[in-house]
Amino acid sequence: MIATIFYILSAAALLATLMAITRKNPVHAVIYLVHAFFALALIFFILGAPLVAAWEVIIYAGAIMVLFLFIIMMLELTPGEAARGPGWQRWAPVILLSGSIVVCTLLLMTAEPQAGPGGPNFYASPRDFGYGLFKEYALAVEIVSFQLLFAAVGAFYVGRGERTRRRARGDER
């Protein structure tokens, strides 16, 4: 049963990611990306990494998506696609993805992933994970944090108006 849930979640993550890439409306793309992150969090849980699953939900599906929505609002991006067709055609992908993720979550709540066949025989405790993250891979963590800092500074600069940019350069007219 765990293997079946794994494949359902994998298909949901791939479909949600594909929908996020192909949407012209940036808010719709973010919503599909949140679906993909929730499916990935459940996959991490199945693979025996509940801490990583929790971080996936808290950091990526929560904080990073709020940052993306903030950047969309700051850049004043307008939707690229108009509403077309009946309402059920627009909502069908979201409902199917949400339904599959909710059903898989309920199934996982009734089954222990480590107990059945197909589940991993290992478990990474939060202490072991923290030790590996901040001792063995400390340089990689710092590089990623600097990349996020540079992305935030770049988004701030791009979001400023042209007049503010000219004033910052000193060539105000």
Rank of each mutant, 00 (worst) to 15 (best):
L107R: 08
F45K: 03
E56I: 07
V102N: 04
T4L: 14
W88V: 10
A63T: 08
E112N: 09
L107C: 13
T4I: 12
R166V: 10
R23K: 14
T4Y: 06
R169D: 10
A152S: 11
M73R: 05
I58F: 07
L108W: 03
W55A: 10
F150H: 02
L106W: 12
Y123I: 08
L133H: 00
S10W: 04
F70W: 06
E81M: 12
P26F: 09
L67T: 10
E56M: 15
G85C: 07
L139S: 12
P86G: 11
A20P: 02
A124N: 04
D171S: 09
G118V: 09
L47C: 08
G132L: 07
P117V: 15
V66G: 06
Q147C: 12
L139N: 04
L133A: 13
A41I: 05
G130D: 02
G154Y: 06
F150K: 01
A82K: 13
G87Y: 10
A49M: 07
A54H: 03
G48R: 00
A115D: 06
E172R: 05
L96M: 13
F68A: 13
T105I: 13
L96Y: 08
Q89L: 15
L149R: 01
Q147H: 05
W91R: 02
V66A: 14
A92T: 09
M65H: 02
V34C: 07
V158W: 02
K24W: 08
V158R: 01
A54P: 00
I143V: 15
R163D: 14
Y131K: 01
D171Q: 06
Y131W: 03
A12S: 15
Y7I: 10
A54R: 02
D171G: 06
I71Y: 00
A61L: 08
W88G: 02
V34F: 05
M73G: 09
A63C: 06
F38I: 12
V141M: 14
G48V: 04
L69Y: 05
A39V: 11
M1F: 08
N25M: 08
R127E: 15
G118I: 07
L133T: 08
I59E: 11
W55I: 09
G80M: 08
P79C: 11
F134G: 03
I46L: 14
V144N: 13
A53Y: 02
L106G: 11
Q89S: 13
L14A: 15
G130W: 01
E56P: 01
G154T: 04
R169A: 14
Y157P: 00
A151T: 08
F146A: 14
P113I: 06
L139C: 05
D128V: 04
I2S: 04
F37Y: 12
I101C: 09
Q114H: 07
V158M: 07
A20W: 03
D171M: 07
A168P: 00
Y60R: 04
D128H: 01
G48L: 05
F44G: 08
F70Q: 05
E76P: 00
L106T: 11
L75C: 06
G130Q: 01
E142F: 15
